[in-house]
Structures are given as C-alpha cells and as structure tokens.
Amino acid sequence: MIVKAVISIIAYLVLAPLVGGLLAGLERKLSAKMQRRVGPPVLQPFYDVFKLFEKEKMAPTRFQDFYVLIFVVFVIASGLLFFAGGDLLLVIFTLTIATAFLIVAAYSSNSPYAEVGAERELLAMMAYEPMVLLTAIGFYMYHGSFNVRDILASDTMCLLPMLGIFVGWIFILTLKFRKSPFDLSMSHHAHQELVRGLTTEFVGRTMGLIEISHWYENVFLLGFVFLFFANGTAWGWVIGIVVAILTYFVEVFIDNTFARMKWQFAFKASWIIAIVLGMVNIFVLYLCY
C-alpha cells in the first residue's frame, strides 16, 4: 500500500508537468487549427516557461513572490494528496487555500488590473465551490468513503448513478481551467481589457512557476474526471484516462466557440447547475444507496 502510494506520488511529481505542458501545447495547436492557422510547435508551452525563467527578476513587493511560492506548494500538495489516495475533502480544501494565496499575491501588488483580476477570481471561486463540494459528497454517498484509495478499489463504475454530478463537474471545469466563457480573472488569449488580470504583476520566474502549477492543477482536476470511471479493472482505467483527456479537448473546443461572459452569468449558471444537477443527483443517491 505504502509502496504504491510512493510510486504514484513520484509519478505525479515527474509526469504531471510533462502531461500538463503537452496538453497545453496540443491545446494551442488545436485552437490554431480551429482558426485555420498553423499554430506554434507542440512544445511551445515549455519554451515559454523556460523563457520566463531566463528573465530578469522583478516584483512590486517582496511579499508577492513568497505568496506565489505558497500557492505553488499547496497546488502540488493537493495533487499529491489526491494521487496518494488521500481524502477528497482535504484535497479540495488544500486547493482552495492555494487559490486563496494566489489571490492574496495579486492583491499584494496593489495594481488595479491585478486587483480586478483577483476580485473576479474570488467570484469565480464562489461560483464553482458548491459544485466541487457536491462532487466530493456524491463520491462519499456512492462509495461510502471520501478516500480516493477506496473509490479506486470499488468494483462498480459510478458514472451512471452520478451522471448529474459528472455533468456539473465538467461544467465547472471551464471555470477552474479559466476558459471562455468563464475566463474572467485572466486569460491566455488576447482579451486585454484587464491587461493580464490576476497575473499582470507576476514577472519572469514567478510567472513561470504559476504556469507550471497550472499544469499540475489541470492534471489533477482531470484526475477527478477519471475517478468517475474507475471500477478496479483495466478497462475502467483505459476509459477513464481517455475520457479525461477528451474532456480537456472539449473544454478547448468550448473555449474557442464562446465569448467571455459576465461574472453574473458565471455565478448564476454554476449555482443553478449545482442545485439542479448536483442536488437532485445527491437526493437520488440518498434514496438508492
């Protein structure tokens, strides 16, 4: 058991940034193809991050980089807890703390653009948090445990009984990945009314660290998608991984076909989804299991 956990922790630490970076590269290629462009090389996100590490150090306050460091540590820690088979609630709250520190880092710069970005990120958190919690509760109601280890060990696939929660989770992934229509706080595209929003004041290696932790975060959020398919057999693993990767590209597709919405819409839509799909599904689980 412990050996298994250690192996998956090491695999996560090494592979997650590679997979996350590759997914980001494929994403940019796919976006380019959708716009009938050639697009950058698939390894471009890695070049970008290496470049950021080559840049001069610069920060508006000396605390900013410290907060960002805490953000990075907590993002990686939440992934570690997840892949080591830990408690889903702990994973979720660790990730929440990480995001909170990113927001504090943005506020600490005192820059108007970063502040607006930070405020929008807070609103986004408020929008997706209920569904995240309902997802964890759903897993508990079906499997009788919050532990990822136990969920993986179960011999039934929980996709169908948790279909509503699955759809809700996919919906809030758009918020979590900060993709259009919900790329409120920052964006990789040329929406420049906020300059770069949340990340406006992060320079050079600080920005590089943030990119890397987004790769970690993306991989482990896709890990949640995988959990819906795990049923203890090899087929469950294959289907889970394929669907998780497909999910990412569906998000890219949505990203490219929608304009940015206002935060009010993001808020209403995700709460309605959480209440209708999430709550009803939980109620059904309560009646049946």
């Binding site: 380019a32 009938r36 462009r37 090389p41 970008d48 470049k51 300059v195 770069r196 992060f202 320079v203």
Partner: peptide, 23 residues
C-alpha cells in the same frame, strides 16, 4: 501579423499586452 494569413504564433510570438510579460 496575428491573423491566420501571417500567423506569427508559429514562431511562438504572442501579443500579450502586458509590458511585464513582454520581450
């Protein structure tokens, strides 16, 4: 230069609009 016709992103060039990220 950013349009599909010239597509500078194939060289990794992005119009980032933020002096702190720009080269």
């Amino acid at each position: 230069c950013l349009t599909p016709m010239y597509d500078v992103e194939r060289f990794g060039i992005i119009n980032c609009g933020n002096p702190k990220h720009a080269d």
